[in-house]
């Protein structure tokens, strides 16, 4: 990501701009499906109206795995706001997802952050 773009993104994030999330899957496996539903739930709860989820199926285009250095499935990549963050797994533990994505839980204080 180029420097000006990055700066713009940071500013956008500060104004609580749109979150761009990418979920990498490989076919419709139970893990992928549950990851997607878990993610949808978390986003609706905490990022209502300001998120965009793009699901990338590597079976359809394996070349896409290289860009985000995907090796585990499912992988969630936070593209915006920067910096890029990655979470692997089916996102069942929403507490950890919030920490991993650095999302301020809606209606609550951030609590302990980054205790992994």
């Amino acid at each position: 990501m180029t420097q000006p773009a990055r700066g713009a993104a940071v500013r956008a994030a500060q104004k609580e701009e749109v979150w761009v999330l990418k979920l990498y899957v490989a076919g419709h496996t139970p893990k992928s499906l549950s990851a997607f539903s878990n993610l949808k739930k978390i986003c609706d709860e905490h990022l209502a109206g300001r998120y965009r989820i793009r699901v990338v199926d590597l079976l359809k285009d394996p070349r896409l795995a290289k860009g985000d250095q995907i090796f585990a499935i499912p992988t969630l990549v936070r593209q915006l706001p920067p910096p890029v963050k990655k979470i692997i797994g089916d996102l069942a533990n929403s507490e950890r997802v919030l920490i991993g994505l650095d999302i301020q839980p809606a209606g609550r204080s951030a609590g302990k952050r980054k205790e992994s």
Binding site: Y24, A26, T29, K31, A35, N38, L58, L59, P62, R63, A65, K66, Q69, I70, F71, A72, I73, P74, T75, P83, V84, K85, K86, I87, I88, G89, D90, L91, A92, N93, R96, V97, I99, G100, S116
Partner: peptide, 28 residues
Amino acid sequence: MDYIRIDRSEIEETGEYDLEGLFVRLAH
């Protein structure tokens, strides 16, 4: 050649996962 970068500092793990991504890249 394919370089797979694994950086623990930028990866969070939660729940079940597998290495299908690696398989897909390898198969490709």
